[in-house]
Design a protein around this nucleic acid. Structure first.
Lengths: 183, 183
DNA sequence: CTCTGCATGTAAAAGGTTACATGATTCC
DNA sequence: GGAATCATGTAACCTTTTACATGCAGAG
C-alpha cells in the first residue's frame, strides 16, 4: 500500500501510545495543526486502510455502552514510520492569501493601499504568535525535544513575519514613492 | 457567482494587461508560484466561468492557424478585484512535511537523527533561496513596487529558515542531550 | 436534565493535480 | 527537419473539507 503524509501523521501519533480516532484528531489539533491539519473524514477511512495493511491493530476498549477502538502500531508500522522519518525528501508548500493580495496590490494604484495590505498580514501573524505563545506557556516545559523544536520554529517564523511587516510598513509610510522592494 | 482565490489570481494577472490562458499560467509560474500555484486544469474552466459572470471578456486573436483568445477585465471585473484586494481577511496555510517529520522525530530516539532532519530542511530552504536570488538578479530592478515586496518577503522568509536550521543544528550537535526546544 | 466532551462514521461537494490529446509556429 | 514554445482543452483521479447522523458518559 502507498502511504501518504496523512498515514504518517497517524502512525506518528500512535508511536506515542495507543489512541482512538478521536484522540488522534485531538492530538493533531493541539500539535501539528499549524502546518498539517487533518479531519475526521480522513482519519477513520485511513485507520481502516492502515489496519488492512497490517501497520496498526485495533483493540476494542468500550467503556460501558460507549464504543471505542484503541489503535496501536505493529512492528511493521513502527518500521514504516522510522523509514519515513529518515528519508530526506520533504515537501514545503505555502498558501498565503495575504501575500497573493500583496502581489497584486499594485492594481490599487497607491502605496498607502499596499501598506494597509501589509498591516492586515501583520495582524494575522500576530494572532498566530499569540496562540503559539499560549501553547508555550501552557506546556512549554514538558515537551519532548523535537516537539519543542517545532514549537520554537513556529514562534520564530511568525515573529519574523511580524517584524518584516512592521519594518515594511515603516518604509512605506516614510518614503511613499521610493519603495524599492525592501532590498 | 462565488469567487475563490483562483478567480482573483486570474483577475489579478489580467489587471496588468490582456492575456491568454497560456499567458496566465506563465505569469503565475514566474510570479505567485511559491505561495499560490495553479494548473491548466483550473484555468480554462475558470476563464469560462468568469466570462459567463461578466467579469472578463474574451477576444479572438488567432495568429494564422493557431487559435488564441485574449482575455481582459471588464469594469465589473476590475471592481471585483479591487474589492478583494481591500478586504483584510486572508488565509495563511503552511504544509511543511519537513516540520511534520521533525515533530515526530522523537520516535527515532536520538538527537542526532533530529539534527539530520533539520539539516534536510535547511537544504530545501537553501534551494528555494537560490531560485529566488536568481529571479531577483534577473528582473529585480524593474518590478512593480508590491511585486518587489513579495519577492523580498520570500527571500527574507527562506533566509530566516536557513538561519534557524543552522543555529538549531549547531545547538543539537553541541549539547546532545540537553536540547530545550530552542528557547 | 442539560450541556459538554467522548466517540464513530459517511456522503457529498469542493478543490486541485496529472495525464493525455491535439496542433500551429518559430527558432536553430 | 526537429525541437522548443505557444495554445487550448478535458477526463480521470486524488485529496480534503463540510455537513450530517448518531448516541453514551460525566459534570453541574
Amino acid at each position: 500500500m502507498e502511504l501518504r503524509a496523512l498515514s504518517y501523521v497517524i502512525l506518528g501519533v500512535l508511536a506515542r501510545g495507543p489512541a482512538s480516532g478521536y484522540d488522534i484528531k485531538a492530538a493533531v489539533d493541539g500539535g501539528t495543526r499549524y502546518f498539517w491539519a487533518i479531519s475526521y473524514g480522513q482519519i477513520y477511512p485511513e485507520l481502516r486502510r492502515l489496519t488492512d495493511a497490517g501497520l496498526i491493530v485495533g483493540e476494542e476498549a468500550a467503556q460501558g455502552g460507549r464504543p471505542r477502538t484503541l489503535h496501536r502500531l505493529t512492528d511493521e508500522g513502527a518500521r514504516a514510520l522510522e523509514a519515513w522519518l529518515t528519508t530526506p525528501e520533504a515537501g514545503f508548500e505555502l498558501r498565503d492569501e495575504g501575500l497573493l493580495k500583496l502581489f497584486f496590490a499594485d492594481a490599487l494604484g497607491s502605496l498607502d493601499a499596499v501598506r494597509r495590505r501589509v498591516a492586515a498580514k501583520r495582524a494575522h501573524h500576530e494572532a498566530v504568535l499569540g496562540e503559539l505563545l499560549a501553547i508555550e506557556q501552557g506546556k512549554g516545559g514538558d515537551l519532548p525535544p523535537a516537539v519543542g523544536l517545532t514549537l520554537a520554529y513556529g514562534l520564530g517564523l511568525h515573529a519574523w513575519a511580524v517584524e518584516w511587516c512592521r519594518s515594511t510598513e515603516r518604509r512605506l509610510s516614510g518614503d511613499a514613492g521610493h519603495a524599492d522592494g525592501g532590498r
